[in-house]
Every structure is written in C-alpha cells, then in structure tokens.
Amino acid sequence: MADKATGEGASHAAEAAGHAAEGGSGLNIHPMDQFVVEPLFSDGPVHMFTVTNSTLWLALAVLGVALLLVVGTRGRAVVPSRVQSVAELAYGFVHKMVEDVAGKDALKFFPYIMTLFLFIAFSNMLALLPMSFSPTSQIAVTAVLGFSVFIAVTVLGFVLNGSKFLGLFWVSSAPLVLRPILAVIELISYFVRPVSHSVRLAGNIMAGHAVLKVFAGFAGALGLFSFIPILAITGIYALELLVAFIQAYVFTILTCVYLKDALHPSH
C-alpha cells in the first residue's frame, strides 16, 4: 500500500478497517476493483505517458470509430452495405439532433458533437465486454468532456453575443421582484451544469458496472443456486446496453441544448 502514491494518506486507516470488514463476511466482492487504472506492461506507478488499461480501451474506441465510419464507408456506395448504413444512421441521427435542438446555425459544430457522441457511445459499448475497462466510468475522463463543453459553450456565448449572453440569467419575462432571485438560481444551475453533465455519465456507467460485479459476486458465493444471480445479470446487462446508448444520447443532446443557449441566449 505504501508504494502506491494515493495522495489520500489521511483515510488509510478507515479504508483498511473497511476492507477488513469486507473480508470478514463470506462474500468476496470488490465491485470497485474493475475501475482501477493500472499499467499494462509494468508494475510501476502510473505516469502521464504510461500505457495503461485505460489507454488500451480508449484506443479500441478510436479503432471502433475508424472501423465503422472510415473503413465501413470506403465503398461510398449509393446503395449502402450494412456497415455503411449503420454509419449513415449515426450521421443522420446526430445531424438531425443538432439541427432540431440547437438550430441550423449550430451545424458548423456538428463534427465536434459527433466526436463526443461516437466516443462516448463506443467507450460505453466496449466497456460492456467482459474483462474490459470503461474509460467513461472515470470521473477524470467525463469531467474533461463535461468541462470542455461548458468552457467552449461559455466562451462561444460571450464571443457571439457579448454582454447580451448575460441575458440568459436575467429572465425578462418574470416579475421585476423575482428577477434577482431567479438570476441567482439561474447562475447556480448554470455552474452546476458541467458537474451534473459529467457526473451523470460517470455515475451511470459506474453504477451499472458495480451492480453487475456485485451480482457476479453473489453468483460465485451461491454455488448451486447461482443461476438466480446469473439471470439477474442477464437482465441488468440488457439494461446496461440501453443505458450505454442512452447516456451517449443524453450527453450529446445536453451539449446541443447548452450550445443553443450560447447561440440564442434570449429566453
């Protein structure tokens, strides 16, 4: 434990007690172990450029995107092959979402939003493979995604609209007395956006995977009756497939909503 530089030295005692309590019960379930970032080729500490399991699965997500959208469409067929029609479906899906939610003038940001959608969708889906690692369950990863959207949208709002962007917080349709209160609420909710945006994604993926792991632990402990948790795992797995897609969709559509606020700040 000492060789790992955790940076949280204060809580080691409580943690150790916690693990001791877990070890004391009959179940040997460690649902959080699957989220550990560890080096692939060495045992040392994780430095900035170390190739880790996170790196591997990020690279696989990039590879998946490349296979679907670049290799899959290389035929440029007017009558599409199966892979090409899936790629076109994804393109049309995000394109329509941007156009419907954020407006026609948001289409110049379409490649960025498409990047976000495909990255999240592919990481979520690949993370459902057994023995895989899910980058989107890491708060560091989703925070980068969420805060980059937040900063980009805020900067864009001020660049395009100048001080009129502050009208987003000054609800002109409300009675004058309520406006300062509403402004405070709007301001708080505006700054909570990136937090909820990133925590929602990480929390959903983390929760789903942890639940799967807990049920897998039950299956290991129950012996003959392990078919019950295995059935439950099957059901939860199907739900997680849905969640993996829906979270990518929700992340993207919220990005579009925030973008719309930046482009047209009037309420």
Partner: peptide, 12 residues
C-alpha cells in the same frame, strides 16, 4: 484498490 474508489485517485 488503493483508495477504495479508484476514480478518486489523482495520481492517474
């Protein structure tokens, strides 16, 4: 699982 919740390990 050095920090209980691996997501909160800032070293990574």
């Amino acid at each position: 699982s050095a920090s209980g919740m691996p997501q909160l390990d800032p070293s990574t």
